[in-house]
Amino acid sequence: MYTVSEGIIRERFPHRWSSCGSYVLESMPFYHVYPGSQCLAIGTTSCNFRCRYCSNAYIAKEDPEIQQGRLYHLTPRELVGMARKFNCRSIVFNVNEPAVSLPSLLDVAEEAKAAAIPMGCLTNGYTTVESTELLASIFSFFNVSLKGISDSFNRTYIGVESSSPVLRTIRRLAQDRHVEVTTPVVQGANDSEIDTIADLLAEIDPEIPWHVLRLLPEDEMKDAEYPNIQAIDAALQSARKKLPYIYFHNFISSQWVNTLCPDCGCTVIERFSLGCGGDQLKRLFCKDSQCPDCGRKINLMSEQACFKSTQRVLQ
């Protein structure tokens, strides 16, 4: 979060982290980046959205001032050192919105680059063109949360006017970054937009992995009904023809978490879903990002591609 002091925008609590831990990338979720690898997951406090169903409201919505006592105080060097100690292949900003902590993240990125550790993030993508470029300079892989399309949904459930900035961000990042997209489905509110979102993503890049999450009702929606899994699965049928990498999860033992080859349909990556940030790699059949059966290229972020893009921006 920021404050204005003497006409200058400053970060209120630089290098204060609400979370810092070692987890598998699948649990973030990133399904198409270094399968099965550990990442150092970090987060700060606050958000530029006010989602009614926020899973981390005690971090994202609570006054950061009163959270200071429980935060980690770690310098960029210490964070990167921690990633090394825990054999983490990447550093991922999750929990809250990275755009609220850009100066700290720029510092971490510099240190991470020197250590050849790529960074990724979960973002709501609701950023200005300038901020998006800053994010692109920090992170080489993204999971952008496209929560809904219609203005009315965004006003009612997210607290913003429009999804246009998010779509603009996805378009921009998809040009030269690895992008996955996540949409939590709120039954009766944005489930009717599933086909529209699929069309939009397919138009940007049909190879984008799309995580359709069954909403876990939390925060202001704690007493809401759990969305119907069969109904959402049925609603995804036509979308699956447009996007080959659609995943439907965020509930225990989802059977829609494997990656299938878009050409021959063979299973190329198997995963377990423990729901709610607990996904894991089960088996990886791809070799050199190719389908073992037909040789089709699978959209997997490779080591080489990652460092190439990071170097281009951070040099």
């Binding site: 069954r214 759990y226 119907n228 899994i229 069969q230 509930f251 225990i252 033992s253 059977q255 377990f272 729901g275 089960k282």
Partner: peptide, 19 residues
């Protein structure tokens, strides 16, 4: 047998495979 509210799935406990 997992019950995720309105949806059940039956698994081999050891492998996690649907059965």
């Amino acid at each position: 047998v997992v019950d995720a509210r309105g949806w059940q799935n039956t698994l081999d406990l050891k492998t996690g495979e649907k059965i």
